[in-house]
Amino acid sequence: MKIAFSPCPNDTFIFHAWVHGLVPGAPKLEVTYADIDVTNELATRPDGPDVLKISCAALPWVLDRYALVPCGGALGKGCGPLILTREPVIPADLSGKRVAIPSERSTAYLLFRLWTSGHVSGGVGEITVMPFHEIMPAVKEGRVDAGLVIHEARFTYPQYGLHMLVDLGEWWEADTGLPIPLGAIIARRTLDRETIAGWIRASLDHAWTHPEASMEYILKHAQEMDPEVAKAHIRLYVNEYSANLGDGGRDAIGTLLTRAAKEGLVPPFDPASLE
């Protein structure tokens, strides 16, 4: 079975057992490790992988061929994307400025656009897509005016001497009371997604039961990340919604995409397509 997910600790933690043949009855995986911008694009291809981790923001483009799997994704509270700058600024200072983002079809960028529509008069200027690990250096070096960052950048941005303008997760939670819908697992509609969900949950259960067993694998793919940062990343992004989206998780995804569709930021969206 072909699968694509990011090399980030939350994904490698969840899928370690399945990748290493530790989930009884699960098929062998052929894994593509790629940043979210790449997996979002892979999901649009007719020959895309059987299972993928993509941004929740990319779902409206792929739900005709892929179905949402009710586990394995990345949702939660206190784990949202940040807008970082080289010097302290206020929201109005972003007007007309150049901003680096990790993907045009990322939840981070969708939250960014929803937030800027009410806080940055006239909007920002040029948007530049970069791999997420290149964004903070670009802000520090002045190649961009601001950066939209995700993942472990929440923990490491002070090391670059950068300043947080806004935590978009805090803004979303205050505005909606819902968790932040970052990433989702999808599977081809020709496959039995409940069986796939069972394999993912078994892999996650193994990870939670044997948390140190996956650490070598996690650090191998985490671009030389400090082990303590990797563990903090996992604690933040692997949670109850990873095991089961539930009504709260689906409501979060549906609310985000319904709002975005009303703003014309994504194609028309029917929340029933998440079932």
Rank of each mutant, 00 (worst) to 15 (best):
residue 212 E to C: 08
residue 169 G to M: 02
residue 195 T to C: 01
residue 203 S to M: 11
residue 11 D to L: 14
residue 58 A to H: 05
residue 118 G to E: 09
residue 89 V to I: 13
residue 107 T to D: 00
residue 208 W to A: 12
residue 213 A to Q: 09
residue 104 E to W: 11
residue 81 P to F: 07
residue 86 R to Q: 09
residue 115 W to N: 03
residue 3 I to R: 02
residue 141 E to P: 09
residue 187 A to T: 12
residue 101 I to W: 00
residue 146 A to I: 15
residue 240 E to R: 13
residue 265 L to S: 10
residue 208 W to T: 13
residue 230 A to H: 05
residue 176 T to P: 06
residue 5 F to S: 14
residue 173 E to R: 01
residue 147 G to W: 06
residue 237 Y to P: 00
residue 14 I to P: 00
residue 257 L to Q: 05
residue 74 A to C: 11
residue 227 P to W: 01
residue 265 L to E: 10
residue 125 G to L: 00
residue 3 I to A: 06
residue 229 V to D: 06
residue 175 D to G: 13
residue 37 D to V: 05
residue 80 G to N: 07
residue 22 L to I: 13
residue 136 M to I: 07
residue 104 E to G: 12
residue 138 A to Q: 09
residue 46 P to G: 00
residue 228 E to T: 06
residue 142 G to A: 08
residue 272 A to G: 02
residue 241 Y to S: 06
residue 122 G to Y: 03
residue 77 K to I: 15
residue 147 G to R: 11
residue 124 V to N: 00
residue 126 E to T: 06
residue 129 V to K: 01
residue 100 A to D: 06
residue 185 I to W: 01
residue 153 A to H: 14
residue 37 D to P: 00
residue 168 L to R: 10
residue 94 L to W: 09
residue 80 G to R: 07
residue 205 D to N: 07
residue 180 I to P: 07
residue 270 D to V: 10
residue 267 P to W: 08
residue 223 Q to F: 14
residue 93 D to Y: 13
residue 158 P to A: 05
residue 211 P to D: 00
residue 27 P to A: 03
residue 109 Y to F: 14
residue 202 A to P: 06
residue 198 G to Q: 11
residue 176 T to S: 01
residue 45 R to A: 01
residue 13 F to H: 03
residue 254 G to F: 02
residue 91 P to H: 02
residue 72 G to P: 06
residue 231 K to D: 03
residue 170 E to C: 04
residue 86 R to P: 02
residue 104 E to M: 14
residue 213 A to L: 07
residue 161 G to M: 09
residue 21 G to E: 04
residue 15 F to Q: 08
residue 115 W to R: 06
residue 114 L to A: 02
residue 192 D to Q: 12
residue 47 D to I: 10
residue 38 V to G: 03
residue 144 V to W: 02
residue 233 H to S: 12
residue 145 D to G: 15
residue 210 H to A: 09
residue 212 E to T: 15
residue 225 M to A: 05
residue 58 A to D: 06
residue 106 S to Y: 10
residue 55 S to F: 02
residue 255 T to S: 07
residue 264 G to V: 12
residue 264 G to Y: 07
residue 222 A to E: 03
residue 187 A to D: 06
residue 240 E to M: 04
residue 178 L to S: 15
residue 62 V to H: 00
residue 179 P to R: 03
residue 149 V to H: 00
residue 67 A to N: 08
residue 249 G to T: 10
residue 4 A to Y: 02
residue 102 P to E: 04
residue 77 K to C: 09
residue 48 G to N: 09
residue 218 I to A: 05
residue 179 P to M: 01
residue 130 M to C: 01
residue 152 E to V: 14
residue 10 N to M: 15
residue 1 M to S: 04
residue 33 Y to F: 15
